[in-house]
Amino acid sequence: MNHSTLATFSNDFLYSIYEQVPVGIIITNDNGVIEDTNKFLCVTMGYEKSELIGQNVEFLIPERFRHAHIKLRNDYLKQPTNRKMGQNKELYAIAKNGSEVPIQANLTTINENASLKVIITLNDISIKKEDDKKLKALNNELVEISTPILEAWDRIAIIPIIGTLDTERARLLMENTLTQMQKERYLVTILDITGLAAIDTSVAHHLLKLTEAIRLMGGLAIITGVSPEIAKTIVRLGVNLGDLKTSSTLSRGIKYAIASLENN
């Protein structure tokens, strides 16, 4: 480790960095007892340093997680590494006022005079979580709006599929289509894929599943907007369309739909 630059910083300066850097820092010994925290941690969680020093780190953890945490802590010390705490789990810490703060935490260990210290860095992610929630809600709205079901003719529905068709969107599309079909008694549903970004095995699978569902409910499914590109890809992928009616243009699809309604 190169001490040359750091050597020019005074101890006071280094200590100020430790205290004020906008990340909560907790130092514990290898028994999970808190030996020090920085000022930012205290401000974030609402404690005085003196209230935390000497406590077990579990003091800051909601009761229902404490037992599991003790075990995790001991397991960690058997093979200490620099790592993020709680992969794929939501972490919470208890503030002085008793509220649970969602946090993100990382662990690292440092040897200090032949004893092992664990350094925990901790960040309050409530704002991030709120933003994530808002983003998810916006996303859902977008999915809802982006697949409108339009009534073209009596008993014929047209669904323009625009952009991508991932599993989540396909699931929503299926539920909406079938519900509307039952509610409005659509005998024919035209799926227009002119605006479909790309077609691969997974997208083809979702489309086919949707047409199967339409058929199973007693409707007729037609796919329109099949471009030369998509036609080539479908053949190349070896996708079996069965007796599914497809067409290159929406207008032809509508004509076919009207004709089959009259013939039926």
Binding site: M181, Q182, Y186, L187, E212, L216, M217, G218
Partner: peptide, 20 residues
């Protein structure tokens, strides 16, 4: 019913259905 049937893997191919 339609969705659960398909997810169950029951294709019901030879069955004809009607909306009402």
């Amino acid at each position: 019913a339609t969705i659960t049937l398909l997810e169950l893997g029951m294709r019901m191919e030879h069955i004809e259905t009607a909306l009402d």
